[in-house]
Amino acid sequence: MKIALLRVFYVVALVLALPIGMAAAQSADPFEYGWNLDGDASELRFLSVKKQKVAETSSFATLSGLITEDGQAQVRVLLDSVDTKVDLRNVRMRFLFFETFRYPEAVITTQLSPDLLTDLHLTRRKEIELPYTFTLRGVTLERTTDVAVTLIDNDRVVVSSITPIAFTLEELDLEEGRMKLQEAANVDITPIGVVSFNFVFDRAQPGTPPDLPEATLTPAAVALEEKGVMTEEACLGRFEILSKTGNIFFASGSTRLDDKSIPLLENLYDIVDRCPSFRLEIAGHTDSVGSDAQNQTISERRAASVASWLQDKGIPSDRLVAVGYGESRPIVDNDTPANRARNRRIEFTALTE
């Protein structure tokens, strides 16, 4: 009986001592060795509202980040990995809203103060005010938000938003993208986005400082879509969406492709290559400035320039049909410079045999 009681006391003492031992094992230096983001466990979500009352929450599947030994933190978001749970909605977000072929990533940076976190190994959770910068589409905003820092164990920490963060689409240069989305999806979209996050970091190993991989610019490298040959629905939807980007550029009065067109053309090539059962009609359109004959000629030659670019990339010529419609098919009246710019466009249509 006495031996049994001694064993019970021993177990109780051991259990009670565990938290003390664990706390002692924690480092008082919150940034010792630095930290790497666990992208699979982390989340960055944004909420949008359409039709004035329908709220939709989306996220990003590919995140990378680090916290250095002096508390500098950075999180990169690969925008191609946007996840709305619907394939063609993802494609619209990539090509029309974020224009990921031009702006592949968003970046969040901040400086964490060690003075605010030196007792994290004891408190386990702290709420702090955190200034940060957010860069998207070449626009950088400086903001402050409240975050919760939670130490799961000595080698794992979570940084979470306490309250959602609101942005206007205008301040992020996303208003034009919103208009394109509205036109493509035929819905009204509220010009505000609301963001929340849950970033999970693992402590780096001694002698191996945290590493941040470079963003990949490979078309659709991290897109949540079927790989290889696409279905008919996926192909038809993508060509329709690409036609609405307005990112095929030519010098004024010229039929030579501007280098600014290359990012979108690379994505177009990737899609054409993965839709081998379709021929592609490449249609040139102009505004009403100039004579009918001039506009007809320039529309044909611009379409031919796009077809030639795709052929040089390896798409067989018999899969491409270049046509010009001149000024005969405007999508808006040619009454303002902005409208005329919209009418000067290249459209893509999948042709079945």
Rank of each mutant, 00 (worst) to 15 (best):
I108L: 12
L174E: 06
D146P: 00
T216Q: 07
P164M: 11
S64H: 08
R7A: 14
T286P: 02
L122N: 04
P114R: 10
L18R: 04
E347Q: 09
L96H: 07
I3W: 15
Q182Y: 07
L257Q: 07
V306S: 01
R340G: 02
G39T: 13
E142K: 14
P213K: 11
L116K: 15
I162W: 07
I315A: 10
F278W: 03
E171L: 05
E176V: 15
N295W: 09
A221R: 12
G71P: 02
T216D: 11
V86M: 04
A185L: 15
V107G: 09
E232C: 00
M93Q: 02
L88R: 06
V82R: 08
P213I: 09
T216Y: 00
T163Y: 12
T140G: 08
S261E: 04
G253P: 01
K313R: 15
M93I: 00
D270E: 14
T336W: 11
S305K: 03
S328F: 09
F197K: 06
P210A: 08
V77H: 08
C235H: 02
N295R: 14
N343Y: 02
S48C: 06
P330T: 01
D188M: 14
F348Q: 05
I331F: 03
D70W: 00
T150F: 00
D333S: 15
L66E: 04
T297H: 12
R89T: 11
L236T: 14
F46Q: 00
P316N: 11
T68I: 01
R156F: 04
R279I: 01
L265C: 01
A283D: 11
A13F: 08
S328E: 12
W309N: 05
G246D: 06
K313N: 10
I241Q: 10
G284W: 05
G207P: 11
G34H: 03
V149G: 03
E225A: 11
N334R: 13
I165M: 03
K126A: 09
E175R: 14
A184L: 04
D29F: 02
F95W: 01
T68H: 01
S305D: 02
R92A: 09
F249P: 00
V306I: 05
L268S: 05
R178Y: 02
M179G: 14
F98P: 00
G177L: 03
D146S: 12
P276G: 03
V54E: 14
T68E: 09
I162K: 14
F95P: 00
D83H: 10
E32S: 02
L6T: 10
L172S: 05
A322M: 07
I192C: 07
N186A: 11
N267Y: 14
T84E: 06
E99M: 11
E226S: 04
S277V: 01
V12Y: 01
A28C: 00
P210G: 09
E300Q: 15
G177K: 01
T218M: 10
L88V: 01
P131V: 11
P191A: 08
R238Q: 13
D38P: 05
E129K: 13
F250V: 12
I162Q: 14
T297E: 15
E226N: 07
P219F: 02
S59A: 14
D70E: 11
W35A: 01
I298H: 05
S64P: 03
L122D: 06
K53W: 05
D318Y: 15
